[in-house]
């Protein structure tokens, strides 16, 4: 196996809660592969504030130039960067429209959170972009669960006459954490038993899916609408998938490990049944 696929396999196995420190450690071990790693491993999105507009935006490798990040609202780098790339005027117009549209999308589905869209030209014609969405829930009290949702939708599009071909790669990172603490006492006639406990349940990770589709294009806004519909459908599909894996699959495995029902009783019943069947057959 080569180094990059080993790194990616490792990131597929190590705890998602430690993704940032593990990526840092990998970069230290193999600095030559830092770019491969940051281009292939999605990390939790960082929240930043646009100094010009006061609006929050999301930071990731797609709007990064060294230590600076470009805001989708003011188009400015913070800290200022002389040679940080910005989209050409036409594409910037589309980027503004896309940011407006996904801001509405964010409000409709997330009822809060932050969104950002970044676009860039591709060398062989066409353009690419990333749609970012993030929402964090901080619990009102200690015992309530906390959680965060990060969407990273990367797309590429090439126009072919009146059609455009879209390739979309979507990753959703979801983290849910509950902390508990309680004291319980049970005093019955014979034995008094009391117990206290505390604990933490953490469900975290990411899932990635891809799709390729063709859609008609009439003008610039068509791209925003097409990508909008594709992202919306993908998120609906992936939300179902996340629900299934987080709350169904992992729970089934726990019950596979330890059974709430008495397995011995079930075994005895099966044996009894076998004996009865044998008895009847005789």
């Amino acid at each position: 196996m080569d180094i990059v696929s080993s790194m990616l396999d490792l990131m597929r196995r190590l705890p998602p809660t430690k993704i940032e420190e593990n990526v840092d450690a990998l970069v230290q071990i193999s600095p030559d592969y830092a770019d491969d790693l940051s281009g292939n491993v999605d990390q939790p999105l960082k929240l930043r504030v646009d100094k010009a507009t006061g609006k929050e935006y999301l930071a990731c490798v797609y709007n990064q130039d060294g230590e600076s990040y470009r805001s989708p609202w003011s188009n400015e780098y913070d800290p200022p960067s002389e040679d940080g790339p910005v989209p050409p005027p036409k594409l910037r117009k589309l980027e503004i429209a896309a940011n407006e549209a996904f801001d509405t999308y964010r409000e409709m589905y997330f009822e809060g959170g932050v969104s950002s869209v970044f676009l860039w030209d591709l060398e062989d014609g066409g353009f690419a972009g990333v749609v970012l969405l993030k929402k964090t829930l901080t619990p009102a009290s200690h015992s309530e669960p906390s959680g965060s949702w990060d969407s990273i939708h990367v797309f590429e599009t090439v126009e072919r006459g009146r059609q455009a071909h879209y390739k979309l790669t979507s990753t959703i990172m979801l983290q849910l954490i509950t902390r508990r603490e309680s004291v319980e006492a049970n005093f019955d006639a014979k034995d008094s038993t009391a117990w206290k406990h505390d604990g933490e349940v953490s469900l975290s990770g990411s899932m990635t899916r891809q799709t390729e589709q063709d859609h008609p294009v009439q003008d610039g806004t068509s791209h925003v609408q097409n990508v909008g519909r594709m992202v919306e459908d993908m998120e609906i599909k992936m939300r179902n998938l996340l629900q299934e894996v987080y709350f169904g699959k992992t729970r089934d495995v726990v019950h596979d490990l330890r059974s709430l029902d008495d397995l011995e009783k079930a075994r005895r019943q099966r044996e009894l049944q076998k004996e009865l069947v044998g008895f009847i057959k005789r």
């Binding site: 705890p15 034995d191 469900l203 990770g205 992992t250 495995v253």
Partner: peptide
Amino acid sequence: RILVNVHYYEQGNVQLETKHNASIVLPAS
């Protein structure tokens, strides 16, 4: 203490990690 770990990694990496500490008083019997 009870510790449960589950890993699901088909086109993704999802992990359940639970920690639970308990202390139980023993009855006189």
